[in-house]
Design a protein around this nucleic acid. Structure first.
Lengths: 130, 130
DNA sequence: ATTTAGATTGTTATAATATAACACTATGTA
DNA sequence: TACATAGTGTTATATTATAACAATCTAAAT
């Protein structure tokens, strides 16, 4: 359905790191972790992050300036994202709910406008922190 | 229903500026604009912004690192926000839809968890830019 | 009126996040 | 081969945000 993107070396290194991380990673934390692999400058990280976001392999958690691997097989290229964020432990979970995405994709604002692109962040306490 | 907060001098100056602005304002743009009123340092701005966000007089547009006055009379203290953002002209509009807020407040994730606090940003093209 | 607790202020310094500009290199395709 | 496009490496810098500390204001309770 969609083009498979072959990741470049930097993109792969950075994706692997984020994908293995149990929590969202911040750009400079990523930088610190990949310096031993030859990625030395912030821009190298940000460029890879931009591309990975663009092709849907990772998502940016806007309220946290952090990045998480996409674990929702249906949103590889999607820009329609939803997350829950624990306000205590900062655990972030991607929400993949067909009814939610359907509702939001069909939502019309007061001008009758629909939006296929959105980002939704829910805040609360996760199971463990409740 | 809710406590009226009397704004302090700095808070009032900064709120007035944001409230008059037709578009979201960034912190350092706010700083530049209030320097003639004696607010000289970033922290003075950020502290007022934090408080204004906390009491619901303004909202932060997370994807833009910018602040907009609340024009939704029902969300003075609310943390349940929704916006549409034009990807060309960057116009931001707060969405106040009873059905949307009802849907989101009642949304349950796969653990059955509900969230009273959320932020939703829709992206698309506004009327003028379409 | 005085005390006191909490919020707010002013200030300097610094941390954290992100991009500009430019020359160079790899990769795929005509 | 040669051309276009995307990616790289690098230095410098812009932008966004917070730490720490002393001083001041404000409201409520003596």
């Amino acid at each position: 359905m969609h083009k498979e993107h072959t990741l470049t070396k930097n993109q792969q290194i950075i994706f692997d790191l984020i994908d293995k991380s149990p929590e969202p990673m911040k750009a400079y934390s990523i930088l610190f972790n990949v310096q031993k692999k030859g990625i030395k400058a912030p821009l190298q990280v940000y460029r890879a992050l931009d591309k990975l976001v663009e092709i849907g392999k990772i998502h940016k958690i806007e309220s946290r300036n952090a990045f998480i691997a996409c674990h929702n097989s249906s949103c590889q290229v999607s820009k329609a994202t939803a997350f829950s964020i624990c306000e205590i432990c900062e655990k972030v979970t991607e929400i993949s709910s067909a009814s939610l995405s359907k509702y939001l994709a069909n939502f019309k604002d007061k001008d009758g406008m629909k939006y296929s692109k959105y980002n939704l962040e829910f805040f609360g306490l996760c199971k463990k922190c409740r």
